[in-house]
Design a protein around this nucleic acid. Structure first.
Lengths: 252, 252
DNA sequence: TTCTATCCGTGCGCTAACGCACGCAGTCAT
DNA sequence: ATGACTGCGTGCGTTAGCGCACGGATAGAA
């Protein structure tokens, strides 16, 4: 609602040199991303890349038997469609909107053209891709070794970092799909968090009351990824007036 | 043993244009990789990249509590050290030799210099990185949803693909570390496979007797990664009229 | 040969997570 | 206000994998 998103709300776009921005921004197209929208399916040839401003998109892997698992989350710190510049043009995963909002999108061709100038865009994309790699690796390990309780905390923090405020709109069923666990498992874990006074849950609305505690209860995976992402994409300090200080509040 | 490995045994090196090979091969250094050797630790600044000829290297993630999990396997189809050209210079994982052999290594600086020519080397590396990404994503999903039995099959196949012959030298303890499970779990799963006549196991020596059966018993993850890796790295030259024709734009 | 370190098999109790089923409570449209 | 639908809580029994502990087997060294 309210103010129209600007391209600079996406951290990658914002980090580009002015001249690159000037070239690119003309071709950007603002697209609303409603909850549940699928940006691409597993194996689809990618026509566009998306730079979220305030939406969150999950990279979800769906298996033959229908079971699924999230392998990565992308918000305004990143982009969807790295496969375009990596050369594969498609990936075996699905990109689905997890939290409604907007994204700027760019034609694959135009994106590639800019990358092929071998300037800052290329290097930014490379570093972002490494951050993505880190997130996936950590997800793999987390899936192996950590309890649902811990993973829920991690997941909430990941989402929180990509949203303004302390509210999420998210049913337990959806979270379960992302984590690749049962819905009841999420109910259980969320119930514990609520009893501890860390969150408030009600019919698809979550309010985080005690973020520090959430970080304590989470597994190390959250902090590791955050630290590494910070290191790789050490953006300029958050612009004045921006409440999206996702890369500035690592405690511990 | 005996014959000295050639750089061309590594698929990536072999896939490079002759002129690039001529530039690079002078700087390659043949390095023996004994079992268990650690090429780099989590967080280490990477001095070299390694192109295995006949060794297998695991990217292993070790957690705070000591638990571990393999996030990727690299043999003669790839290289160790993508972080060098991605810009991060380090990763939060450990690279450890899982099967002894040789690798050619190259100074990070020289590797970067070649990549920075923005020629075939860059594009090859990008496609390889996407293959790596795919492997990690699949590992994450596999860790979530598949049984130890299935994962063992997958793991054996991955190793087999990177070795000549049908023999592996690998204790169950080591496999357990890679899969991030108990040693007893591996004993169990391997016992079943042996009863089925699929493998022969004896004190760190595995002989695969029935590979087709192994593929049947494995989860889909093996086939998915293999197919995608093939797509990304084998069928590189864009054929006219193929859906990868946009590809040539990047590859030139 | 004999010793010893390593590797592998096995049994037992335990826990986390699963699959299923049911029921209640908000929420929204009529 | 009424009904229906969605989202959440709960209580089973079941199972895969864990942690531990011990014991047998095999290879390589003394």
């Amino acid at each position: 609602m309210s103010a129209m998103p600007t391209p600079q709300q996406n951290h990658l776009l914002a980090a580009l040199p002015v001249e690159v921005q000037q070239r690119l921004f003309l071709n950007l197209e603002l697209i609303p991303l409603p909850l549940g929208k699928i940006l691409y399916e597993s194996g689809d040839a990618l026509r566009h890349v998306y730079f979220p401003t305030d939406a969150i998109v999950s990279l979800l892997y769906v298996m033959e038997n229908g079971a699924s698992a999230e392998i990565s989350v992308v918000g305004n710190e990143g982009l969807i469609g790295v496969a375009v510049f990596m050369g594969g043009e498609s990936t075996p995963s699905r990109a689905v909107v997890q939290s409604a909002g907007y994204a700027y999108r760019l034609l694959g061709k135009q994106f590639k053209a800019e990358v092929n100038r071998h300037g800052e865009m290329l290097h930014l994309m490379l570093r972002y891709t490494q951050a993505l790699l880190t997130q996936m690796a950590q997800t793999a390990v987390c899936n192996r070794h950590h309890s649902i309780d811990q993973q829920l905390c991690r997941w909430l923090l990941l989402s929180l970092d990509r949203l303004p405020g302390d509210q999420l709109t998210m049913t337990q069923e959806l979270i379960a799909n992302m984590l690749g666990v049962r819905r009841e498992g999420v109910t259980d874990a969320a119930g514990k968090l609520q009893k501890l006074g860390v969150i408030e849950y009600s019919r698809g609305h979550i309010k985080v009351l005690d973020r520090p505690r959430l970080e304590q209860l989470s597994c190390e995976c959250y902090a590791v990824v955050k630290k590494e992402t910070d290191r790789l994409l050490h953006y300029m300090p958050a612009r004045p007036g921006s409440q999206f200080s996702q890369f500035s509040q690592l405690s511990r």
